[in-house]
Design a binder for these strands. Structure first.
Length: 443
RNA sequence: GCCGAUUUAGCUUAGCUGGUGGAGCGUGGGACUGUUAAUCCCAAGGUCGUGGGUUCGAGCCCCACAAUCGGCGCCA
């Protein structure tokens, strides 16, 4: 009951003149009462299949007519080269088996009008029917690009001798402020869903030295933007002995490798999304400029933006800053007062921390946040106390520094954001199968 | 948390100054031997988001609520 013939291979000419069995789903049908055209879809492509009444007989022909959109079929027949068919190949059907039929009372709800209304994006209806929208060509393309990006992240880090390492998703404390944690009941106690792998990665840093992960992170932010999810996929790395510059080199290397991999594996798909391949090639091949926070403030003030030194840069300011950029830019050396305790203070100037954000162009915002960590026991205690953060939940984090602390650092990359940016999506929801945000946990 | 908008058939929508809601797609029936979102004819399908109010009369005006969408803060 397996499957041996793939529509993509048929369209590539691997089965010309052969009699084969195609297994797939009906994408569209049309025809008369003598001839029927079935556009059959599988995960690799589509092909037009032609059924004729005088060849099939009345019974098989009528059953073919009854195969509504998204019915699953097994069609047997001969593959012919035919210019009249999309893709250049066509099957002449000799036998029909309907595997899963569709009730005419409840036809497939994702209609042409529903797709046209979304205009390449999304509508409430398509979000409600996400489980069915997944099988349309646009979502299938996004899911393939997504797979490509995940594969690229693994291949980049493994190629650089990083070790994949897993942290728990139930945690006791926060990485960021704390107000954005999801609280979950835990056998009469409170636990939280992790916001980041970082703190647990630092515990393993003295063991593995170079480590990475791809894992979901959870943030209870009521953000309603095209860049935010409450559950997102986080690619993080941690590296012993590393400087801010070295960490940035990896961030740049990783993002360029993702762009290159997506281009190598899916250029036709990117073109089908109207993405400019030349632009992506620029992202894959160019070095990314680096700029200090102070310089960014000067540029913004020069443009008349009301911003003071010491403020974190919110999206409205990022947008102004990046609107003239045609490449991702690193922003480094933020003021200490704008960043949490785990960022290492710059030994050359105590007002700054050794950190970086990578800002994507085209208005996609921040895709990487990282830097060197506060690594001595003395300094971490000082910074935790300065911020008024309780020590208790972080005792294991402090211990890491008490026993042979070393300089180290890392970054976190928002995988969905990168895919959204590289695919040119209107909204981050378009690149994840079942998006979760502050107002939606279904389907 | 703040600001703005939307809600009419399964989907997408039109609906005038308040006077018994039309269409396209899809579905069903019919016609057609090569279609490309096939075409042509016919039919079924609506308590106009929910509740209240104004009015002789509300899809339309007013109030409340709900759901959803967009933007901001925050961040990846």
């Amino acid at each position: 009951m397996g499957k041996t013939v793939w529509i993509g291979d048929v369209q590539d000419g691997l089965h010309d003149e052969q009699t084969v069995e195609l297994k797939g789903w009906v994408k569209r049908t049309r025809g008369s009462n003598k001839i029927r055209f079935i556009v059959l879809r599988d995960s690799t492509g589509t092909i037009q299949c032609v059924g004729k009444r005088d060849v099939l007989g009345d019974e098989a022909f009528e059953s073919l007519k009854g195969a509504l959109i998204e019915s699953s079929l097994i069609l047997s027949g001969t593959i012919l080269v035919d210019e009249r068919a999309d893709g250049g190949h066509e099957m002449t059907i000799s036998n029909v088996k309907i595997v899963g039929s569709v009730d005419p009372e409840r036809p497939f709800p994702i209609t042409e009008s529903a797709m046209a209304a979304a205009d390449g994006g999304e509508t409430e209806f398509l979000l409600d029917n996400r489980h069915l929208y997944l099988r349309t060509s646009r979502m299938t393309t996004m899911l393939k690009l997504r797979s490509s990006a995940f594969g690229a992240i693994h291949s980049y880090f493994r190629g650089q001798d990083f070790i994949e390492y897993q942290a728990p998703n139930f945690v006791a404390g926060a990485v960021e402020g704390g107000s954005t944690l999801f609280e979950v009941p835990y056998f009469g106690k409170k636990a939280y869903l992790t916001q980041s792998w970082q703190l647990y990665a630092e515990a393993a840093m003295p063991a593995l030295e170079r480590l990475y992960t791809i894992a979901p992170s959870f943030r209870a932010e009521k953000s309603r933007t095209r860049r935010h999810l409450t559950e997102f996929w986080h690619a993080e790395m941690e590296m012993a002995w590393a400087t801010n510059d070295e960490i940035m080199n990896h961030g740049e290397g990783l993002v360029r490798h993702i762009a290159r991999t997506m281009l190598d594996e899916h250029s036709p798909e990117l073109t089908s999304l109207d993405r400019d391949i030349e632009r992506l090639a620029l992202y894959a091949d160019s070095p990314y400029p680096r700029m200090r926070y102070d310089e960014a403030i000067e540029i913004l003030q020069g443009k008349g933006v009301d911003v003071e030194w010491g403020q974190d840069l919110d999206y409205s300011k990022e947008k102004v800053l990046t609107q003239d950029f045609d490449l991702p830019h690193f922003l480094t050396h933020y003021p200490k007062i704008a960043k949490p305790f785990y960022h290492r203070v710059d030994p050359d100037d105590g007002n700054y921390v050794l950190c970086h954000d990578l800002l994507a162009p085209e208005g996609y915002g921040e895709i990487i946040g990282g830097g060197e960590r506060t690594w001595s026991e003395e300094e971490i205690l000082k910074r935790i106390d300065e911020e008024g953060t309780p020590r208790d939940p972080y005792q294991f984090y402090i211990d890491v520094r008490s026993y042979g602390g070393v300089p180290h650092g890392g970054f976190g990359l928002g995988v969905d954001r990168v895919i959204s940016w590289l695919s040119g999506a209107e909204h981050i929801r378009e690149v994840i199968p079942f998006p979760r945000d502050s107002r939606r946990v279904t389907p």
